[in-house]
């Protein structure tokens, strides 16, 4: 799936902006825990927010495979499609 110009991507990037202390260009390739200053509790808060917003629920196996912003966006589409 092409996520380059995607509404969900833009929304997710807006949420992540608060952790973007080095002012990087947030793209689908941004590594969530690697490039951003986000700790493990904040990651879970973010995931919860996304789940609530889209009325979805990520199984743990899926979360463990999410590395980049693009991975997260694809996972949101996948879960929203499955539910």
């Amino acid at each position: 799936m092409d996520v380059a110009d995607d509404l969900v991507l833009r929304k997710v990037c807006r949420k992540l902006q608060q952790f973007n202390v080095r002012n990087l260009d947030l793209t689908a390739e941004t590594d969530i825990t690697g490039d951003l200053e986000i700790d493990s509790v904040a990651v879970l808060d973010l995931i919860m927010e996304v789940e609530d917003e889209y009325g979805i629920s990520f199984p743990m196996n899926l979360l463990s495979e999410i590395r980049t912003v693009g991975d997260l966006v694809r996972a949101i589409h996948k879960q929203a499609g499955a539910q």
Partner: peptide
């Protein structure tokens, strides 16, 4: 165990 970390798949 069950994986708990975002992006932690390989280590898990």
């Amino acid at each position: 165990p069950v994986p708990m970390n975002l992006g932690g798949k390989d280590a898990y």
